[in-house]
């Protein structure tokens, strides 16, 4: 049976018709073209499909689209504002907290969900918040570093203390930034400070 549903995704409201057995992930990826949320295990065990539902990170592969009707959804596509990456995304890029990248959208969403609720979490809380997101490239150390940097930066600090003990700058070079079309972090950092 088909149902008329209304999803507010990244601030935009969509009226959609869907069958009841389709998941929120199906609708996001196939109907709305938002392929940032990944289909990993499709059974709730990997976290690659994480989105915020009314502000809380959930597995969109386990939520029927009809159940999300009338509710607010934020996907990884909704984090960057005006062409500038979200602080968490920026920190992931700077720390190289991305290997194959498949788990990254889910990781970023899980971190965003945590920091919206607890802006100054302890390391144990960060690890707990990420314990439903699997990275099979074993990149957790850099991910944790990136989250620490994002936390410091969001609370006004420059946030490079953890980057390199020898004082070298591990941020992407200007050339890398130009190639990737990323906003220059130096500028955004000043504007936030």
């Amino acid at each position: 049976m088909k149902h008329l549903i209304q999803l507010t995704v990244n601030g935009q409201t969509h009226d959609l018709v869907t069958r009841a057995e389709r998941t929120l992930l199906d609708v996001l990826r196939e109907d709305l073209g938002l392929t940032g949320s990944k289909r990993g295990c499709d059974l709730g065990a990997c976290g690659a499909c994480a989105v915020l539902l009314d502000g809380r990170p959930i597995s969109s592969c386990l939520t029927l689209a009809v159940e999300a009707s009338g509710r607010e959804i934020v996907t990884v596509e909704g984090l960057a504002q005006g062409g500038a990456l979200h602080v968490v995304q920026e920190a992931f890029v700077e720390h190289g907290a991305v290997q194959c990248g498949f788990c990254t959208p889910g990781m970023v969403i899980a971190v965003k969900g945590l920091l919206d609720e607890r802006p100054h979490p302890e390391d144990a809380e960060i690890l707990e918040a990420l314990s439903g997101n699997l990275c099979r490239c074993t990149g957790y150390v850099k991910i944790l570093d990136a989250v620490r940097t994002a936390i410091r930066r969001m609370s006004g600090g420059r946030g490079c203390e953890a980057l390199a003990a020898d004082g070298s700058d591990l941020r992407p070079s200007q050339a890398t930034r130009d190639r990737s079309g990323l906003a220059a972090p130096a500028t955004t950092r000043e504007s936030r400070a």
Binding site: G44, G47, A50, L53, R56, P57, I58, S59, L62, T63, A110, E128, A129, S131, G132, N133
Partner: peptide, 9 residues
């Protein structure tokens, strides 16, 4: 039980 993503639902 489960993981944070599962416990939120």
């Amino acid at each position: 039980a489960g993981s944070p993503l599962l416990r939120n639902r």
